[in-house]
């Protein structure tokens, strides 16, 4: 499926990151009407979120992301990036405003059916790989089928239907780890474990891939490889990518649009090639 692309990618781990072309339909501040008219994947308007009434985390976020975009969400610690990502897939209910992901409206208390509908089309990769360490690599990838009909068979690759096993092996092939399918997850390096997490997210062929600082726990080279893999697989499959990062090289290189959050509000929303040093300074200054 994606083998040739990912093989070519991982065969040259030390190469310079290639700057991906910025989308022409994004201008300073907001997506253009052309982008807005595309298939909306995420549409947040005046989004509010607070765990404690006195300390709101998100204070009216407007964000529209169209199909096929690669968006980097940047901001200092506590700016609300991770909270926003979790709200997008219904892990956290919202406190105000409106939010639709994959045309499903999310609210303060999200119904299971709405969450399931979104999660079926969304892959989520965490900062830490979050694998079940005592299970095999293949079983961890098969876990990606949880939430689908007959998901009791997703507990282990031994129980999984042949079609799932084949899809899981294809996903592992994409991330160049098919030869480690039967190894225990905790015997892999950090970079390899993150690649398994990506395979687990991709196995259901999602339309949207959300990654919360996917390279933060990796060394620079592994982090670069993981980000290149993300960008390339999303481009090949037409998957919309939304990731957070503290690494500005990653944000500017692998996204075609950068959204900065500061104190729960959007500071700027620009094409990645329009982001200036001044913008970054404003984002991270106290």
């Amino acid at each position: 499926m994606l083998s040739s692309a990912s093989e070519a990618l991982l065969d040259r781990p030390a190469r310079e990151p290639q700057r991906l072309p910025a989308r022409a339909d994004v201008t300073d501040g907001r997506p253009t009407p052309a982008a807005r008219s595309g298939t909306p994947v995420i549409d947040a308007r005046g989004l509010m979120k607070s765990y404690d009434q006195r300390r709101p985390i998100l204070k009216g976020v407007d964000l529209a992301i169209s199909a096929g975009e690669r968006v980097a969400l940047i901001g200092s610690n506590g700016s609300g990036k991770s909270t926003l990502l979790r709200c997008l897939i219904g892990l956290h209910g919202i406190s105000g405003g409106s939010l639709a992901t994959m045309n499903q409206n999310l609210s303060a208390r999200n119904h299971r059916a709405v969450q399931d509908s979104i999660r079926l089309k969304t892959g989520f990769v965490f900062q830490k790989h979050c694998l079940v360490r005592r299970r095999t690599v293949l079983s961890n990838v098969v876990h990606g089928f949880f939430g689908t009909p007959g998901s009791w068979r997703a507990h282990s690759h031994h129980l999984a239907p042949t079609a799932w096993r084949m899809r899981a092996m294809e996903a592992l092939d994409d991330v160049r780890l098919a030869d480690r399918a039967l190894a225990r997850a905790d015997t892999l390096s950090g970079g390899q474990q993150q690649r398994v997490a990506i395979a687990r997210a991709l196995v259901r062929q999602p339309r949207l891939l959300i990654a919360d600082e996917p390279a933060a726990s990796l060394d620079p080279l592994s982090g670069q490889n993981v980000m290149e893999l993300f960008a390339r697989l999303c481009a090949d499959h037409g998957i919309t990518l939304l990731f957070t990062s503290h690494d500005m090289d990653h944000a500017l290189t692998y996204a075609n649009r950068v959204v900065a959050l500061k104190n729960g509000r959007i500071l700027f929303d620009k094409a990645s090639d329009k982001v200036s040093q001044e913008d970054l300074k404003d984002t991270f200054d106290d």
Partner: peptide
């Protein structure tokens, strides 16, 4: 039991019983 794999399976859409069998029991075996 380790919380990270449980969060990952929740994000995927796993039910509580699936999280028990898929993430918690292997971790605490």
């Amino acid at each position: 039991a380790e919380k990270d794999p449980q969060d990952a399976l929740t994000a995927i859409g796993a039910r509580r019983s699936s999280i028990l069998a898929g993430a918690i029991l292997p971790d605490i075996a």
